[in-house]
């Protein structure tokens, strides 16, 4: 009986460690998806035909939540016709989705910066601005990947060891 209890405690602690790892993995995935979404938008700008709200409606459908809903929410708030600027809409949507995105502050800051580029300037200008933000995001993605690698094993071991420690105490 004691043995089963100990195994349960160790297993639970291990799972908790995995949970923390998943956060790092999610961050990487979200950043990858956002970069990909921006790439799709850049293609739309190239053809110069689809207006921003429609473009993000289409792009949003291609991704899972929360990135998909981030894009779709953005397009819906633009289409609401309340007269808000693209920057205001983007900020509001980011704030609403920030807890789900679980990005670090500096990563969120890059995303916030995107707000002031939407719909500004001609084709060339828009393309350049998107590329610039993409660069920053790629940099952030690199960091997130390193972190994931570093923390992946660390947290799993920590969970395991934590569980063992608790068990030793209890025995």
């Amino acid at each position: 009986m004691k043995l089963v209890g100990a195994a349960l405690i160790i297993f639970t602690a291990y799972l908790m460690g995995c949970q923390v790892c998943a956060l790092y993995q999610r961050r990487v995935r979200y950043l990858e998806e956002i970069i990909m979404g921006l790439e799709l938008f850049r293609a739309e700008v190239n053809y110069g035909l689809t207006p921003l709200p429609q473009a993000f409606q289409n792009i949003g459908k291609k991704f899972k939540n929360p990135v998909g809903s981030l894009f779709v929410d953005f397009s819906l708030s633009l289409l609401q016709g309340k007269g808000l600027s693209a920057l205001e809409c983007w900020r509001a949507v980011l704030e609403k989705r920030s807890s789900e995105l679980a990005l670090k502050d500096e990563q969120m800051e890059i995303l916030e910066r995107l707000g002031s580029t939407w719909g500004q300037g001609d084709k060339d200008g828009q393309r350049k601005q998107i590329s610039l933000i993409q660069e920053l995001l790629k940099h952030a993605l690199e960091g997130a990947r390193n972190e994931r690698q570093k923390n992946d094993k660390l947290w799993k071991y920590l969970g395991l060891l934590g569980g063992v420690t608790v068990v030793l105490f209890l025995i």
């Binding site: 700008v45 110069g48 035909l49 689809t50 207006p51 921003l52 709200p53 473009a55 633009l78 693209a86 939407w118 719909g119 500004q120 300037g121 001609d122 084709k123 200008g125 828009q126 393309r127």
Partner: peptide
């Protein structure tokens, strides 16, 4: 429609 790039 927030898209100067589309109206050039």
């Amino acid at each position: 429609s927030y898209s100067l790039y589309a109206c050039e």
